[in-house]
């Protein structure tokens, strides 16, 4: 019984870390622009598939493939803002959100044409079998996933709290006009937010591909779960996203383990609904601040 419990915890944390990273991607763009970028899941998918391309087709070493995939996704994020979102800058936030849905369909379709419908896999980052802890198996890749996720959360929190650029990015969201008046280049900050969020999404995609493989249609569901985590933790809250992602992953894992795995996907949606009914600003969100936001 104890072994099983431990196993559920381990798989819950692994998948939760992924949800957290997707949620963080939503948060970055939201923090700066108030846009909820529904193409976030597709960047996860593209990250994984590009890593497969660089490592499998071009035979680059895995760490280079990781960097290249993240860089390519970052460029795509930039292009998405520069050529699509940026052109509709004057529209309402709602229209922009709908545009992101269109972009996600476009990315998914292009990925299907480029890679076909088959799933692809990557070798694990470090070789070796699972590590056994009290009878429960931990895959080395799971350690990579949680480690990279923790690094991203800590790094971003520091970036937004301590660095001038991070502060500038937040200022753009709070009041773009005022930010411009004090000399912050708002356009560049928005670019930066799209690059960052696409890159983090892609990194999440690369690190799960060795465990769960990647195919063109994987993005939508991961994006949905990640959005659930983002809303649950409070939109714009990085620490909240981490906690909410882990709760979501653990809840799913326990549901599959102790209830029925058939209800697993419902868990995310039920949690999301409960949050929206009971605490619309999310677990760590600020009620006052939430009231001022459009979404």
């Amino acid at each position: 019984m104890g072994t099983d419990f431990l196993q559920y915890v381990i798989s819950g944390i692994t998948i939760g870390a992924i949800y957290a990273m997707v949620a963080i991607g939503y948060n970055i763009i939201y923090s700066v622009t108030e846009i909820i970028n529904f193409a976030q899941g597709e960047f996860v998918m593209l990250g994984g598939l590009f890593a497969v391309f660089f490592a499998g087709t071009l035979h680059l070493p895995l760490y280079l493939a990781f960097i290249c995939a993240v860089a390519v996704a970052g460029c795509l994020g930039l292009a998405m803002d520069r050529f699509i979102i940026g052109r509709a800058r004057e529209s309402s936030v709602l229209s922009l959100i709908i545009i992101t849905i269109a972009v996600s369909i476009l990315l998914k379709g292009s990925a299907m044409l480029a890679w076909g419908k088959d799933p692809y896999s990557l070798p694990a980052f470090s070789s070796g079998g699972p590590i056994m802890v009290a009878g429960a198996a931990i895959q080395p890749q799971a350690l990579w996933i949680t480690g990279i996720c923790a690094l991203v959360v800590i790094g971003l929190t520091l970036f937004f709290r301590k660095s001038v650029y991070g502060q500038a990015m937040l200022a753009c969201a709070n009041n773009p006009q005022a930010a411009r008046l004090v000399g912050i280049p708002v356009r560049y900050m928005v670019f930066l937010s799209f690059i960052l969020s696409a890159a983090i999404g892609a990194a999440a995609g690369v690190i799960i591909t060795p465990v769960s493989m990647m195919e063109y249609e994987r993005g939508a569901l991961l994006g949905l779960k990640g959005f659930g985590a983002a809303a649950f933790g409070g939109l714009g809250q990085f620490f909240g996203a981490l906690v909410a992602g882990l709760i979501l992953g653990l809840a799913e894992s326990f549901c599959a383990g102790y209830l029925s795995s058939g209800y697993k996907d419902a868990v995310a949606l039920v949690l999301l609904l409960m949050v929206l009914f009971l605490k619309p600003e999310g677990l760590f969100g600020n009620r006052e601040a939430a009231r001022l936001k459009k979404f």
Partner: peptide, 15 residues
Amino acid sequence: RYGPQDTDLSAQLTK
């Protein structure tokens, strides 16, 4: 049972 898009089946297998 599990969903066609699931990324991890360790929980089901453990059970």
